[in-house]
């Protein structure tokens, strides 16, 4: 066969039927994959536009800043405040612990039983559904500690819920730093800790920040874990309190509550407005994650990522 081909007087360069079929399949595959990728953009765009259409006329300064009422005309000011309050509180707990655990697992722990157990625990914890975590928070913080519904209980529940993901973010950010940089630092006589503080963390800061802000977006929109822990109400007298031992309904909870339980007459206005504000906030977190990540990478490494 080979000899037949080589003895042929001239081999044509134009395609034959076999090649044409393969090219057709290639073109089809490209097209199908493009459509799948594009459908993600369409889905997001449709979703955003629909929410804007429904919720845009609810938006006003008054809506964003005033407290909810029993009658028509209530706002979502305290809910926005509570969402940020619980977010910040959660990050204060989550970030140091997950940084510490992630650094230990990635930089210090030698492969072995302890590391495997910690890794397995973190991954198992990550699969616990948020409603289960919410009920756990109810048992521990609300009943056992007798706190009742509190912002602190909600934040601690969210900490449990998001720790595994943040540990993973930390580990992946550190793993992305090439070993050659660690060798360079150690080779100059740096200790492990100096190497981590001066080389590994600065090189990983962009990815770390991106990961943290993305998880912040998730915390901001979390509902199930908060219903039974942070509660469904805001204080009528002191809606903008700093005290963590008080019930704190967040924006996402308010959205759920308005649509499912509330008896106010303007449910649609408040609900759609809340949904739109929530969406904008979460989108803002995503955009901020990218901007902050590349800005910090540039700041700490003198180069865009």
């Amino acid at each position: 066969m080979a000899s037949a081909a080589s003895s042929a007087p001239s081999r044509r360069l134009s395609s034959n039927s076999g090649v044409r079929l393969r090219r057709l399949i290639d073109a089809l595959a490209t097209g199908v994959l493009w459509i799948m990728a594009a459908s993600i953009i369409c889905l997001l765009a449709t979703f955003i536009m629909y929410l804007f259409y429904l919720g845009f006329h609810s938006l006003s300064w008054q809506f964003l800043t005033s407290a909810p009422t029993q009658s028509a005309g209530g706002g979502i000011g305290p809910e926005i405040y509570n969402s940020f309050y619980i977010l910040v509180l959660t990050l204060i707990f989550t970030v140091p612990i997950s940084l510490g655990a992630g650094i230990y697992l990635q930089e210090y722990a030698r492969p072995g039983l302890f590391r495997s157990v910690v890794q397995f625990s973190a991954e198992s914890l990550a699969t616990v559904p948020s409603i289960v975590m919410g009920l756990f928070g109810l048992l521990i913080f609300v009943f056992y500690f007798h706190w009742g519904f509190t912002a602190l209980g909600g934040a601690l529940t969210l900490t449990l819920l998001n720790l595994p993901a943040l540990v993973r973010v930390t580990q992946e950010a550190l793993a992305s730093v090439p070993d050659s940089l660690r060798e360079a630092s150690i080779g100059l006589g740096a200790t492990k800790w100096q190497t981590i503080m001066r080389t590994v963390l600065p090189s990983a800061i962009g990815r770390l920040t991106t990961g943290i802000v993305l998880i912040a977006g998730r915390i901001f929109g979390e509902t199930a874990a908060l219903i039974f822990t942070a509660g469904l109400s805001v204080s009528a007298n002191h809606p903008y309190e700093l005290n963590p031992f008080r019930s704190a309904e967040t924006l996402a909870i308010h959205l759920w509550y308005t649509h499912s339980e509330s008896v106010i007459p303007d449910v649609d206005r408040v609900g759609n407005g809340s949904a739109l504000v929530l969406l904008i906030m979460v989108l803002a977190f995503n955009i901020a994650a990218r901007l902050a990540g590349s800005a910090l990478t540039k700041r700490f490494t003198g180069r865009s990522s």
Binding site: P178, S180, L181, E183, A184, S185, G187, L188, G189, A190, T191, Q194, R198, T199, P202, S203, F300, T301, G302, R303
Partner: peptide, 27 residues
């Protein structure tokens, strides 16, 4: 500190030239 090492592939820290060279003395 007394026995330094240069590696096969250049492995500059993702920092400025100054910070790279000053890294050792600083640590």
């Amino acid at each position: 500190h007394r026995i330094g090492m240069v590696f096969q592939r250049p492995n500059p820290f993702p920092k400025t030239i100054y910070e790279n060279v000053a890294y050792g003395p600083k640590i």
